[in-house]
């Protein structure tokens, strides 16, 4: 009710402009663009230009030396990717990482956020504790997890002494167990971030609705489903989109924990691309994979935004 009346008022304001001097109105539009300019220039130089370069390189057998002529290949690099078994293996591993890390990060992040939402004297301390992995260097925690999952690491020792397994699992020696170890790091490091976003969103859940629901006899779970969840939908959309993008960008943890090994079986798209470009100097093919990756992420992000927006349209 209040929202729609506010909207109506805004619309009325828009069609009935106040009596302002004409010259001021003319000059006005330039100002915001001037403010945008520095940011946009930075964006153009550091993001847009490299992207166009990558697209250009992906169409050539790119020779990195200035004077050398690069042979134009058209879409041959893209065709090569589609027929490259190792590209698909890396793609599969990336999707595994995505599926194995995103739901736990959202669920655990939300659970922790709900627990930490309640007032408590140790709340700031716990928040810092959960957020600590997020701000810790990827390199440090990747090496840490590599030691944890080593043949004689803490994980095997714990599993062995508690009798869960024989304690002799070679976690990093196999495709799926290796990806699992890498995903475990992803979840551990990421939970704090989604928790922070959800905590912020929970501040915006209308207390009046909560109270009304309680008066109506809704239990905890019903209140969570009917009030909390719809209220934090925007945060949920943001977290999901960012995590999907992040999952496709997984690199350092794989590079340091398994190096893509054994026999390239834990390669993800970025480790494969890095090896092609800087190991084998296949900059053209590496760029083609980068462009494919960008397109996949773009399509997925648009699809998710559409999904979340459509639902918003349906809910009253």
């Amino acid at each position: 009710m209040t929202i729609s009346s506010l909207q109506a008022r805004a619309a009325a304001d828009a069609v009935a402009p106040g009596p302002r001097p004409r010259t001021r109105r003319r000059r006005f539009p330039a100002t915001p663009y001037l403010f945008l300019l520095p940011g946009f220039v930075l964006f153009a130089v550091t993001v847009v230009y490299p992207i166009t370069q990558a697209v250009q390189m992906s169409l050539y057998d790119w020779r990195i030396i200035g004077g050398a002529t690069s042979e134009f290949l058209g879409l041959a690099n893209y065709a090569r990717a589609l027929g490259d078994d190792h590209f698909w293996l890396s793609f599969g591993n990336t999707v595994f990482y995505l599926i194995a890390t995103i739901p736990p990060q959202i669920v655990l992040g939300l659970v922790v956020a709900l627990l930490l939402h309640a007032r408590s004297p140790i709340r700031p301390f716990l928040r810092v504790l959960y957020y600590l992995p997020v701000v810790t260097s990827w390199v440090v925690v990747s090496l840490l997890f590599r030691f944890l999952f080593a043949d004689q690491g803490l994980i095997n020792w714990t599993l062995g002494t508690t009798g869960v397994t024989g304690g002799d699992t070679s976690w990093l020696a196999d495709r799926w167990s290796g990806m699992l170890a890498i995903s475990a790091l992803g979840v551990w490091k990421g939970v704090g971030w989604s928790m922070m976003i959800f905590l912020a969103a929970l501040q915006g859940v209308p207390q009046s609705l909560m109270e009304a629901a309680t008066v109506d006899g809704a239990n905890r779970w019903q209140r969570f489903r009917a009030v909390t969840l719809p209220a934090i939908r925007a945060a949920m959309a943001f977290v999901t989109v960012m995590l999907v993008i992040g999952a496709f960008n997984v690199f350092i943890s794989v590079y340091l924990m398994t190096g893509g090994g054994p026999a390239g079986r834990t390669d993800v798209l970025l480790t494969y691309m890095y090896r092609l470009a800087f190991g084998d100097l296949e900059f053209g093919y590496g760029s083609a994979i980068a462009v494919i990756l960008t397109l996949v992420v773009l399509v997925l992000s648009l699809a998710q935004l559409r999904l979340f927006r459509d639902r918003d349209g349906v809910t009253p």
Binding site: A150, D151, Q152, G153, S170, L172, A173, T258, P262, A263
Partner: peptide
């Protein structure tokens, strides 16, 4: 050793 076949977790 399993390091031979690329086990990064081997001693």
């Amino acid at each position: 050793s399993s390091g031979l076949v690329g086990n990064e977790g081997a001693i």
